[in-house]
Every structure is written in structure tokens, then in C-alpha cells.
Amino acid sequence: MTRATTSVRGLWSRLGTTGPVYLALVLLLAASAVYVATRGGNLFTTANTVDLFTRSSLLGFLAIGQTLVILCRSLDLSVGYVAALSTVVAATTMAGDPSRILLGVGAALGLAALIGLANGLVVTRLRVNPFITTLGMGLIIKGYLDTNFQGPAGAIPAAFQTFGYTRIGVLPVSTLVMLGLAAAAVLFLHRTRTGYHMYAVGGDAEVARLSGVRAGIPTVTAHVLCSVTAGVAGLLLAARFGTGSATVYGNGYELEAIAAVVLGGTYLLGGRGGVAGTIAGVFILATLDTVFNVLGVDPFVKDVMRGVIVIAAVAVYARGRHSRAAVRVRFPSGGAPPPPAPDPGPRPEPEPLGGRR
């Protein structure tokens, strides 16, 4: 093996799952552009590029928070319902008054944080499975919305609607905010003690506990931040709709967010992955949606293709992880197995007790 090959493999291993997913994104963009061109279109027109970035911003907010939760070996199925509730809270609080924008934003994010805190405490203190906990919380929110809001509620001031429609060049402001939030999440995971503890708890909660880590704190923090990012997604939806919409929970945002996290290389069993890969996963899904819309693909076929891609990505990551684990366990050096020890020959018979007679 040459030194150059060794260096490339070393760099690739240090990139972990982030490098392959960005390579997949570049290849997908290139292949999609060629395929659309053969159909007489152009994938990178201004309208298509703006559409791609617009799609990525909403999903990105949800996926960033979902990444933190999954890293702790947990899950949050209530983010779509939290986003729907946040649109209603923000719109009814603002009531079309520009002077109440900060109050509406604070109310929506504050309520989202309380929901995340409740999720985290039920998971860590009551030991309820996170799937059941967050699904139950989502159903509670759904029942409240369906009972009290049969249609649009409240009004968003025009000044705040710019958050949903203003762009700089081809980049929407919402996408810039999403990328800024992603950068903050990356720094949080890699520069703070709580971020390190999230990886530790996701890797092995018992080992983390024996190392002095209070496993409940990172998990509760992750759930709070996940709900807050869902609240930000709700604010974006409210800005785009101009009012509160209690029925947006039916769009399956929570499943799309999990799919983006998985595509980004974060393991569902926790402990490995990160927000940087998640952003690439978000853009992969946004690219697929844009291409399908340009080509006029049937929505059912679109869902099938997305499902196949997610399953394939999980299979590839799982296979790579298991093969690396097998090599580490059997041969720590990564090389060939050690040769068998030489046969020492027949052993002398032991003398009887009391010596020779």
C-alpha cells in the first residue's frame, strides 16, 4: 500500500460519516443536473435554486434539533405538532401588530421549550420510552389544536412576514438563519461540556454515568433544544402563511427530519454523527424534491424514491460500522491475525507425590 493511499484512507476515516454524505450530495446535484438537461430543462435556474434553498430551511430547523436528540439515543416525534402549535401561538399573540412581534416570538419559543422540558423529564425521570413519550405529547397537542382551532388563527404582521419571503440573491433569509443555527449547533456539540456529554450518553449511558456524567442533563437539554428549533420552524411557517395554521402537523415533518438526520450519517442508536452531516442530508432531500417538481413526478412515486434512498443509506452506514467494529475487535492493529504459537512438544509426566521410589 502506497503512502498516498494510506493518507487518503486516514483522511477519509477522520471525516467519519460527514465526508461520504457531502460527496453523495455533490454527485446527486451533478447527476440531477445532467438528467434534467436531457429532458430539456435547467436545474440551476434562479427559480429552481431559490426553491431548493426554501425547502431546505424549514426541514433544516427541524433536523438540527432532531440530531441533538438522536445523538443522545432518544427520539422526538412531536416536532411537527410543536411547529403547528407555534404558528398559532405566534399569530394569536402578534395579532397583526408589529409592536408585538418580539412578544409573539418569545411566547412561541417559550412554550416550545416547556414542551421539550416535559418530554425530557418524562424520558429521564419516569423512564418512559422516548417514542411513546413524544408520540403521546404530539397527540395531546393535536387534540388541543383540533378542539380549539378549526381554521386560520391570528395574523402575522407584514414586518415579520419578511422572514419567510426575503432573500439575498438566491439565498432566502430563512436559509441563512438555518445555516447560522447549524453552525451554532456544531460549536455547541464540539466546544461545550454538554455537547461532549451528549455523545457520551448516546454512546453508552452506563459508561458515561460511571465516568461522572449525569445522563439526564444532556438528554433533557437535547429535548428542550429540539422543541425550540421546532418552534423556530413554526415561526417560519407562520411568516410564510401570514397566519397561524393548526393543521400543518399533517405534513409529516417529524419523519422528514428523522430521514434527513439518518441520511446525514447520524446513527439512530446515538453516539455518532453530527449536525454538519445532517445539513447535507437536508439538502439531499431538498434536491430530490426540486428535481421531482421540475420533472413533474407523481407525489406517490416521490415518496417511494425517498423511502428507498433512506433505507439504502441506513444499510450502507450499518454495514460500514459493523465491518469496522469486527476489525477492531479481532485484530486491533487492523492487520493480519497473529501466527499460531509453536508447538512446545510433549510435556513430561509429573512425578508422583513423595518423589521417586
Results as ranks from 00 to 15, higher is better:
residue 319 R to A: 15
residue 212 G to K: 05
residue 63 A to F: 00
residue 34 V to C: 07
residue 307 G to N: 07
residue 213 V to Q: 00
residue 19 G to F: 09
residue 90 A to F: 14
residue 44 F to C: 09
residue 317 Y to W: 14
residue 39 R to I: 04
residue 234 G to A: 04
residue 125 R to E: 10
residue 95 A to H: 08
residue 275 V to Y: 02
residue 278 T to K: 11
residue 326 A to W: 13
residue 115 I to N: 04
residue 83 A to P: 12
residue 348 P to E: 00
residue 353 L to Y: 10
residue 84 A to E: 01
residue 311 I to H: 05
residue 32 S to Y: 01
residue 4 A to D: 12
residue 10 G to K: 13
residue 247 T to R: 12
residue 171 L to H: 06
residue 139 L to F: 14
residue 348 P to N: 03
residue 125 R to I: 09
residue 70 I to C: 08
residue 314 V to H: 02
residue 50 V to K: 11
residue 151 G to F: 10
residue 8 V to K: 07
residue 146 D to V: 14
residue 94 M to P: 02
residue 40 G to L: 01
residue 229 T to M: 15
residue 253 Y to R: 10
residue 133 T to G: 03
residue 146 D to T: 15
residue 97 D to K: 04
residue 134 T to P: 01
residue 162 T to Q: 15
residue 259 A to Y: 05
residue 333 S to M: 11
residue 228 V to R: 08
residue 337 P to A: 15
residue 43 L to W: 04
residue 255 L to C: 10
residue 197 H to Y: 12
residue 284 I to Q: 03
residue 283 F to Q: 07
residue 91 A to Q: 02
residue 205 A to S: 13
residue 238 A to Y: 04
residue 158 A to F: 11
residue 297 V to F: 05
residue 81 Y to D: 09
residue 307 G to D: 04
residue 122 V to E: 03
residue 274 G to E: 05
residue 95 A to E: 09
residue 292 F to E: 09
residue 272 R to H: 14
residue 207 V to Y: 08
residue 41 G to D: 10
residue 88 V to M: 09
residue 220 V to I: 15
residue 99 S to D: 08
residue 80 G to P: 00
residue 144 Y to G: 13
residue 136 G to R: 07
residue 165 Y to E: 04
residue 38 T to S: 07
residue 346 P to R: 04
residue 260 A to F: 05
residue 73 R to E: 07
residue 281 G to M: 02
residue 239 A to D: 05
residue 81 Y to H: 11
residue 263 L to N: 03
residue 225 L to C: 10
residue 144 Y to N: 00
residue 98 P to A: 00
residue 336 A to M: 12
residue 153 A to W: 07
residue 75 L to K: 02
residue 214 R to Y: 08
residue 42 N to R: 13
residue 223 H to Q: 14
residue 257 A to C: 01
residue 244 G to Q: 02
residue 264 G to I: 07
residue 228 V to H: 03
residue 340 P to F: 06
residue 301 V to N: 06
residue 356 R to C: 10
residue 329 V to S: 13
residue 341 A to I: 06
residue 235 L to V: 04
residue 315 A to N: 09
residue 226 C to W: 03
residue 48 N to H: 02
